[in-house]
Design a protein around this nucleic acid. Sequence first.
DNA 1: GAGGGTTGGTTCAGATTTTGAACTTACTGT
DNA 2: ACAGTAAGTTCAAAATCTGAACCAACCCTC
Lengths: 139, 139
Amino acid sequence: MPRTVRCPVANALDLVGDKWTLLIVRDLLRGNTRFSQLRMTVEGIPPAVLADRLRLLEDAGVVVRRQYSEHPPRSEYLLTGKGHGLGVVVGALATWSEKYAESDLTLVDHECGHGLNVVYHCPTCERRAPRSRVRMVGR
Amino acid sequence: MPRTVRCPVANALDLVGDKWTLLIVRDLLRGNTRFSQLRMTVEGIPPAVLADRLRLLEDAGVVVRRQYSEHPPRSEYLLTGKGHGLGVVVGALATWSEKYAESDLTLVDHECGHGLNVVYHCPTCERRAPRSRVRMVGR
DNA sequence: GAGGGTTGGTTCAGATTTTGAACTTACTGT
DNA sequence: ACAGTAAGTTCAAAATCTGAACCAACCCTC
């Protein structure tokens, strides 16, 4: 199979480019791990869609299914490291949405209580990178 | 109309929760402003979908349509401030995708040349907020 | 031990959306 | 006059989503 060079954004959107997947991730981040909890907290998701997305997320290594009862079979879904990494994406969406649409929810730092943004950061130089300096390059 | 309190993430996904919209934003960020350019660079997008999404983005105030020729009617699409704000979401997706899937593209700081992450930042304290301290709260 | 509730799903038909291909209109350039 | 380009529109077929109902296996209470 000739592996085509694909934009990482397009790759990511193959998995999370739909209405529901990131809402599921949001609630898994909140600690809702069971089917029934997700069904209640992910606003109006049809159970068939929830089951399908959890399967896709499991295939992608974003969640792991852990069976906490064998009879009857009962599973819960836990985010992997890869899954927790999506938290920043969810955070970025929340930050953007709050800034440009009125909303009753904010992301805050639990310690200082202040509102948060999501920004670019260079781990090597240990400083922020303003958007104007960001480029997407081949390597 | 009874305005229900909605999660900002869900609000954002109403607009950008699909396969194409963030790819269009990505290319507008790159400076591709015309229909024909987007059609070529947004990998295989059907023109009907492109036209539809540009309409939705315009309605949402993410892009403005500027007519650069009246006869024949020719428009280009420019990101507003709100639209540029979505850059961080695109960046977060790219960063995540690179970290957890192999890819040939990276986000770098144009100045120092180093790879970038997307992180939480408290503008009041001027410091980063680790993911563990981030909470979503009502205000 | 009968009935009711919970959990983690599946099934299915109908509605909606997406897709790909072709087509259109109004120019421009040769 | 002819080919080409730009910015879309149109349409039928295919894929996907939605909502509602259903199910099996438990647990609890009476």
